[in-house]
């Protein structure tokens, strides 16, 4: 892997050069929170942020998208709404890149989704290191460092960003920037290691996940699921903000008075009461307890069986978004019996 360094004072020039590769989007502040949005001036970018409201999945799986239109007489027309839009996403945290890597496995792996694949090919990712806050537990989920999934990754080492080049496109961006990048020195490497160690020590949350699938297996009938079911509002906020929740619903929207229409897919949540409702009125997960249990089992156990790792990345968004303060770290600790009132 090629490693260079970029002076911080040249970052705005670098961002300008990046515009050759697509629209530059970055975290910007809106009403006290952060969102990924298109920049129309560099000073809007906020590179020291905790987390965005929505993760980068919104660029790959839009909350609502038309898959195709159908019209009597002309037949089907595939939708290409914004599919060719090239975007450079600047300032993505390692946990969010880890989340994209998980989505890649689901949507660009064994059963590739053409819409996702096209958007993914058109998305350039420039990662940036971060400082964990009170809701971050990505280190527990092994998502505090990524070795792939980015085109470039920037690590703050003082006056410079140590820059890991992850792909050929990343290398093209470095080459297009001519003299902006400089070679790395011994002092830069030592500074990187010092800051990396400091970050490791900064995590306030820690949860052991090694034998978690087995504990989930044993605690399938634990009281905690009923207790959580009583608290959960089934609002789906946790799913919406989750970088790896990818459930969607597909509906045909038929125009009034005709048989023409469009097929649309939009975000769904396993916490919604209609999620497991099937024709005939049968609902496989009618109670809220069964739905929240399903969400935890899918993320922490089912995904491990399928892909060898949990699909939770420890970003803390669900903790922040939950209106009734259901805290995934507390739930996992209770399941492990690490805190009082643990299990049945």
């Amino acid at each position: 892997m090629k490693i260079l360094k970029l002076p911080k004072q040249q970052l705005d020039y670098f961002a300008s050069v990046l515009q050759q590769f697509g629209e530059v989007h970055a975290p910007v502040k809106r009403q006290g929170k952060y969102v990924f949005a298109r920049l129309d001036r560099w000073s809007d970018a906020v590179l020291e942020y905790n987390r965005t409201i929505l993760p980068p999945k919104k660029y790959l799986l839009p909350p609502r998208e038309t898959m195709f239109c159908y019209r009597r007489g002309t037949g089907y027309a595939p939708a290409s709404e914004n599919l060719d839009r090239k975007i450079v996403l600047f300032g993505v945290h390692s946990c969010d890149i880890y989340g994209i890597n998980i989505l890649d496995e689901v949507f660009a792996g064994k059963y590739p989704d053409p819409y996702y694949r096209t958007r993914r090919d058109n998305l350039t990712i420039i990662g940036i290191d971060c400082t964990p806050d009170e809701h971050c537990f990505c280190r527990s989920m092994r998502a505090d460092f990524v070795d792939h999934g980015f085109d470039l990754f920037l690590y703050d080492i003082g006056d410079y960003y140590l820059t890991f080049v992850g792909t050929a496109r990343g290398d093209d961006m470095v080459l297009a920037s001519k003299t902006l990048f400089e070679p790395v020195t011994r002092e830069d490497i030592d500074e990187y290691k010092r800051r990396s160690e400091a970050k490791r020590r900064a995590f306030q949350l820690d949860v052991e996940i090694r034998d978690l699938p087995e504990i989930f297996e044993m605690e399938y009938h634990a009281d905690i699921w009923e207790e959580l079911g009583k608290r959960c509002l089934s609002c789906g906020s946790c799913s919406m903000v989750c970088p790896t929740c990818y459930c969607y619903d597909v509906v045909d929207e038929v125009e009034l008075g005709s048989r023409d229409g469009r097929r649309v897919r939009c975000w769904d949540s396993c916490l919604f009461s209609s999620h497991a409702l099937v024709a005939g009125g049968e609902n496989f997960r009618e109670s809220r307890a069964s739905r929240i249990k399903f969400r935890f089992y899918h993320k922490q156990r089912g995904f491990v069986a399928e892909y060898g790792r949990p699909s939770c990345i420890g970003c803390g968004r669900c903790i922040e978004a939950c209106p009734v303060k259901i805290d995934i770290v507390e739930v996992l600790k209770m399941l492990r019996g690490a805190e009082d009132g643990a299990t049945a």
Partner: peptide, 13 residues
């Protein structure tokens, strides 16, 4: 202008 790369961003818009 107000920022040294402002015109580059405006041009891209």
């Amino acid at each position: 202008m107000n920022e040294r790369t402002e015109g580059l961003f405006a041009l891209q818009s």
